[in-house]
Design a protein around this nucleic acid. Structure first.
Lengths: 103, 103
DNA sequence: TTTATAATATCGTTTAGCGATATTGGAAGG
DNA sequence: CCTTCCAATATCGCTAAACGATATTATAAA
């Protein structure tokens, strides 16, 4: 994360990003890392992979191994429960932005 | 938090809420707890107070003790640095919502 | 001077974050 | 083949955060 002092504001954002991407298409760790970096969230493998494991453990994502271009990947997709969580997150995020934008 | 399974999506939201409220007016712990609960974020004192201490420690908030109605309170206000962090958070939140709302 | 109460603080355990390092499995070249 | 290389994932070990439970504080009222 660029500014370490405000890092812990955004950990949840990262999870929501992941859920969102996994809801649109299957995703895998390394590609997520670069995608998240594009959005300014620089998470390392020591953060991302355990996070993916936990999201799967909790039933928000599910995964399967695939071999692509001779490289093995673990693809994640969102589950029904994960989609519900994403919907809820959308609502919370909308509520947050509308509140903090009030004058 | 109502749904424990998705709890860790929202810890950052809570901090942003706190920063926002502290930017509008001085705030104190117990009132924040009930205000956050109004938004569906049920944080206990064992979470909130250490969080406030950390936010102050990191320079996002500053505090002073006051006696009000014969009760001692620690009022928090946002600092300049905290306001900057809040602005950044606003931008990140807006970016997040606009991304996850894409079809 | 006790009692009650709002408010804050802290303790102890569980869980998460994360840099660093290790591991995996297939491809390509000799 | 078998070694080397590399994308990709996994894990280790430590530090820090989350949080329920409990303790502490200061004042007003009784």
């Amino acid at each position: 994360m660029k500014d370490p002092l405000i890092h812990d504001l955004y950990i949840g954002f990262i999870r929501i990003h992941i859920l969102y991407h996994a809801s649109r298409d299957r995703v895998y760790g390394l590609a997520l890392m670069t995608e998240l970096a594009r959005h300014g969230y620089q998470v390392g493998p020591g953060t991302l992979y355990p996070m993916l494991h936990a999201l799967e453990e909790k039933g928000l994502l599910e995964s399967e191994k695939k071999v692509v271009n001779g490289k093995r990947r673990r693809y994640y997709r969102i589950t029904a429960y994960g989609a519900k969580a994403l919907e809820t997150a959308r609502a919370h995020t909308a509520e947050l932005i509308s509140e903090i934008n009030e004058e």
